[in-house]
Amino acid sequence: MRIRIRRKRQKIQKFFLFTSTMYLCFLLFAAVGSSYLAPHSPTTQNLNQRLLPPFTEGNILGTDDLGRDIWSRIVHGTRSLLLIGTLSVGIALAGGLVMGILAGAIGGIVDSFIMLLMDGILSFPTVLLAITVVSVLGYGLVQVTVALGIVFIPVFARLVRAETISRLTEGYVESSRALGTPFPKILLRHVLPNMMPDLIAQSTVTFALVVVIEASLSFLGLGTQPPEPSWGLMLKESRNFLYQAPWMAVFPGLALAATVFSFNYLGDYLSEQLNPQRW
């Protein structure tokens, strides 16, 4: 009995895993080949075809208030989405690595100072901090990317610091040091590879968060500037037409929800699979 439930659960898990991966692959494909997938330009208006419902000929998901094709806008929106996601996770990862290793490896006053800074950043609500950074740097894609990168540095820094400290105290590292291996080499050989699984899992989860916050920033008018397509912006524009044209909100919303779910699921799965304690 128990085994059967377990098998069933595994099956469901596999199914979700498969769908999530497929969906993310599709997003990647959409971002690279948007012009192949989208029948219309995402910004071209057609004022005679405003608010067409879904499944109209030529506009499979309908049109928005300015007669732009919603499907094309969603597909083109993946580009900025993935770009912002990848770059800001990249920034957060790089920043977090440097800070974390410095703090973990040097210790003492450096450690206290860096961690105080990181805790300071962490104590702000994420969206609020992102808004603050954006208002200082100015509006636009680049600024949003940098802002989100900065906001998530502490998450990685804490992880890296903890890993660094625990690795450096392990027996094999200590013996390697006793044999005279230079410190940078120890970091590269022993410390970094060991924290990779955690970092990968953390990155995926962060990616999902970044996507949501980017959408919120666009929703607030701080992110992607119109008429460029962005899911958050599409949601913002749909707000006034909720009763008349719910499809304007439903499709970008669904796409966003599916993206977040997929990244989260994959992140959970990876952290479970890559956890060395399993073996």
């Binding site: 910004t43 208006q45 004022l47 208030d65 300015l66 119109p226 008429p227 524009e237 006034n240």
Partner: peptide, 13 residues
Amino acid sequence: FEPHVRAGQIYQE
């Protein structure tokens, strides 16, 4: 002001 933002996008085009 959503209407002005909408109008702005139409002017742009």
